[in-house]
């Protein structure tokens, strides 16, 4: 097997932010004492006058971001996913989303692959609580290339966003940045007619791996990178359900309320087909190496293949 190239989505964020900073003087960056980890430190170094560290005060950070945005700035505000979603939820709701302001909340350390820091630092519920907020666009890019595209799109997009990135180096799904990217439009990465695997974030690579394995058993999986959880690409989901007759969702997040929940809502109302959700069961994580945790919490290509098997059985 050829060597798989990897890169952390947060690294791509840091680099892209510096490029954007050069192009657009309106861009301002905030962080809550995690600049080295979230990679906003790159921007701090390049544009110290447009970087504000808000200290360990996530609620204040979101409110300050809203005030800057209300005065014409395009604000990127970063911290870990747990704190950037849960700790400041009400501030995101009222100061950023109700107001439709240009606040881009870009969080890193999403999901269980945050690893050794353990449950307190593993955001497994953030997609669910963020997508419940009206006006808020929610995106989970699949790899570093897509992250660069998303961050560029975010700077042009008018309105509040929540963008979830990862800590770990993860496989590159795309070969470069030359593909077409549009907020709200899922990307079909592999054609297939037996089942559609809909994934987001670092699980897209695992979905492709599972599809490859299953092809050896003559099971033809379609694989979709559904990077935008909100607004959801309903049309694509319904089309996949109709054409392949079964759906498996895969996310590094609780099976409650995240990508799986969002897709299930669409399927149930529009085109009920057998469906399975691969994700973290309704439980907290623990310390461990990211790869060990993915195995223990059922987030491997093998788990995806098993879920595909289960929906195919129900399909007949």
């Amino acid at each position: 097997m050829s060597e798989v190239k990897t890169e952390a989505t947060r690294d791509a964020y840091g680099k892209t932010l510096v490029e954007l900073g050069k192009e657009n003087p309106k861009i301002v960056v905030l962080d809550a004492d995690l600049a080295a980890s979230t990679k906003t430190a790159d921007f701090r170094k390049a544009f110290p006058e447009r970087f504000f560290d808000m200290g360990v005060a996530e609620q204040d950070m979101i409110g300050t971001a809203a005030g800057l945005a209300a005065s014409g700035k395009i604000v990127f505000a970063s911290t870990f996913a747990v704190f950037g979603s849960g700790r400041a939820w009400d501030q995101i709701r009222i100061s950023a989303a109700y107001t439709r302001l240009n606040v881009k909340i870009v969080v890193t350390h999403g999901g269980i692959t945050t690893g050794e820091d353990g449950a307190s630092h593993q955001a497994n519920e953030d997609i669910a609580i963020m997508r419940a907020i009206p006006n808020l666009t929610v995106i989970v890019p699949a790899d570093a290339y897509e992250t660069a595209k998303v961050i560029r799109a975010a700077a042009k997009f008018n309105g509040p966003m929540y963008i979830r990135l990862s800590r770990i180096k993860s496989p590159l799904v795309y070969k470069d940045e030359s593909f077409a990217y549009q907020i709200g439009k899922g990307i079909t990465l592999r054609q297939g007619k037996d089942v559609t695997i809909i994934a987001c974030g670092i699980m897209v690579a695992k979905a492709l791996e599972a599809a490859e394995e299953l092809s050896k058993q003559k099971i033809n999986c379609r694989v979709v990178d559904l990077h935008t959880i909100k607004p959801l690409d309903k049309e694509l989901i319904v089309r996949c359900a109709k054409e392949t007759g079964a759906i498996v969702t895969v996310e590094e997040h609780s099976i409650l309320g995240g990508l799986g929940g969002a897709v299930a809502e669409v399927i149930v109302e529009n085109c009920p087909v057998p469906m399975a959700r691969v994700g973290i069961k309704d439980m907290f994580g623990e310390s461990g190496k990211p790869e060990e945790l993915l195995v223990k919490y059922g987030l491997t290509a093998k788990d995806i293949a098993a879920a595909v098997g289960s929906v195919l059985k129900r399909k007949k």
Partner: peptide, 11 residues
């Protein structure tokens, strides 16, 4: 929430 937003405007 207001004072945080006011700070943003002042910045």
């Amino acid at each position: 929430q207001g004072l945080s937003a006011a700070n943003g405007m002042a910045l």
